[in-house]
Design a protein around this nucleic acid. Structure first.
Lengths: 140, 140
DNA sequence: TACTTATTGATAATGATTTTCAATAAGGAA
DNA sequence: TTCCTTATTGAAAATCATTATCAATAAGTA
């Protein structure tokens, strides 16, 4: 499905479509939690055994460049990646299973405006992320 | 001033006060921008030449443990630290000079509540950070 | 089908952080 | 103050993540 779209995006931007890239793309696109390069490596090698870790790094780099995936920051580390979602979305992470949910919510404008006035800063970007337990982990 | 408070906190928690720790504490406490371990090392050695980089790492670790300092996440990297501020505060970073301003702002409750309802997640923490230009860098 | 050149994986290099360890010094007890 | 226990230190080595190098390979256009 969407893995094809990702590959098309790569191709449109002058990158070649290879078995290695397809394996990485399919792995990351399908995942509902953020994956580290090594995790991607381990999972994608089930699809394409000859894959090298270096190629995973290089492919993730390109996907991030094209805003197809995004880096996820967590207390435990900031090397994991997940789909960038569509439009301006924020992340909600399950602290138990790692599951990621996307949400929109820019009721932040008023707050940002007020902070700008108080501090004298010209604010151009914001990061907003929520942590908790997903519906599943909540009951178990 | 407050550097003494930090050292007292360390002492209260069973850690000894040493010249190395004092140099690190004075450096980080005084800084208005987030510093990496190596930056702290370079700056603190002006106060105490025998300081080792390893000790910087160890001291930062303890300060973070006691919530005296916090790790700052940025697109360029997540290894820098700054004072934790008081109470529940968020960060506003100048993308030009690195200057950090603190602000409070939990008009977020309503938004969080609505996201919780929509997603089924039980939300326990949030992470909110702003980026922009400080008043100074704005004019230059 | 042929050919140009991006891409590959292996290896080596780098950079950041952690571990190990013997020497030192903090700070409570006498 | 002086002594003594033990946390802390810095240097060096080990580990872990990421990046650069390079010759061999394969994408995809002509």
């Amino acid at each position: 499905m969407s893995a094809e779209v990702w590959l098309t995006q790569l191709h449109k931007n002058g990158y070649r479509i290879t078995k290695a890239r397809a394996a990485v793309v399919e792995t990351v696109e399908k995942s509902t939690r953020a994956l580290t390069p090594v995790e991607v490596y381990d999972m994608a090698r089930k699809k394409y055994r000859a894959l090298g870790l270096v190629t995973v790094y290089r492919t993730l780099e390109k996907l991030e460049e094209l805003h197809i995936i995004q880096r996820v920051h967590q207390p435990m580390g900031c090397q994991a990646f997940i789909s960038a979602g569509h439009g301006h979305q924020h992340l909600l992470l399950c602290q138990n299973c790692g599951q990621v949910a996307f949400f929109e919510g820019d009721d932040l404008d008023a707050l940002i405006e007020s902070v700008s006035k108080k501090t004298g800063y010209q604010i151009s970007e914001h990061w907003f992320q929520l942590f908790g337990l997903c519906a599943n982990c909540r009951v178990n």
